[in-house]
């Protein structure tokens, strides 16, 4: 084989079409359908770009991953940068996240968002960073990608999809659309793998209340919760 090709292959910068990298179960997303499509789960480090309308379940999709990663890197930090609204700690706590190792950075200027993202990624003391930032340039993403590799951290970028958005140099790009039983999703870009066709991620196992069974056309009153203090 050509020595340059071999060198690139050894550095894991080149992959061959017939090769399918099987990642370990530790990265499981918590959703078996998504795991199957991703051959294991989310990457262990790098940038994951998630295109989704706001409020359809894009953050809930990441919840099992966040809990798993937090358990694995117990002293590391989970960081939310520039969330569009107040993050509800009750929901995080309910899902089993340890809030002591969770930090929210609330800043509005794009420059500060990118700066703090980069600092967190390369620090090596954060396991996961979530950032809500709509407009990103290729050079900026490239820089974040390098920072994530340096700090062995994974960055989830949550963005609303735009028609004219350029493909960015990310490890994995997902496109999400709403679905009655969970999310409709499509892998649009993937390092070391092919993009996939659309597939459904059912989410009833975690949130049975947030799904509509196809037959159900009427309002359910089966489990009325009532708290009177």
């Amino acid at each position: 084989m050509n020595p340059i090709l071999e060198h690139l292959k050894n550095k894991n910068l080149l992959w061959q079409g017939q090769q399918r990298i099987l990642q370990s179960d530790a990265n499981s997303t918590g959703f078996s359908d998504l795991d199957e499509q991703l051959q294991g789960g989310f990457p262990d480090q790098g940038v994951v770009d998630i295109h989704s309308p706001f409020g359809i379940g894009e953050l809930r999709l990441l919840c099992p991953t966040l809990v798993l990663r937090q358990q694995r890197y117990d002293e590391s930090l989970l960081i939310f940068i520039a969330p569009p609204l107040t993050i509800n700690s009750e929901m995080l706590g309910e899902f089993g996240l340890n809030l002591e190792h969770t930090v929210v950075i609330q800043t509005s200027s794009v420059h500060e968002v990118l700066w703090s993202t980069e600092q967190c990624l390369k620090s090596g003391c954060c396991h996961t960073v979530l950032v809500w930032q709509q407009d990103l340039e290729i050079a900026q993403v490239k820089r974040l990608q390098l920072a994530a590799e340096k700090g062995q951290c994974v960055l989830f970028m949550l963005r609303q999809s735009k028609a004219d958005s350029l493909p960015l140099p990310v490890t994995l790009a997902l496109k999400l659309t709403p679905h009655t039983r969970g999310l409709n999703s499509q892998i649009t870009k993937r390092k070391g793998g092919w993009p996939s066709g659309p597939f459904i991620i059912p989410m009833q196992q975690y949130w049975p209340e947030l799904s509509i069974a196809d037959s159900a056309q009427i309002l359910h009153f089966e489990h009325p919760h009532s708290h009177v203090g």
Partner: peptide, 26 residues
């Protein structure tokens, strides 16, 4: 890591101001 957790937080606080960082609590 190249930076410890507390060092990172102080770095962020110095740049963004102390009110920009918080911890969700119940």
């Amino acid at each position: 890591g190249t930076v410890s957790r507390l060092k990172l937080l102080s770095l962020l606080q110095a740049k963004l101001g102390e009110q920009a960082l918080y911890q969700p609590r119940l």
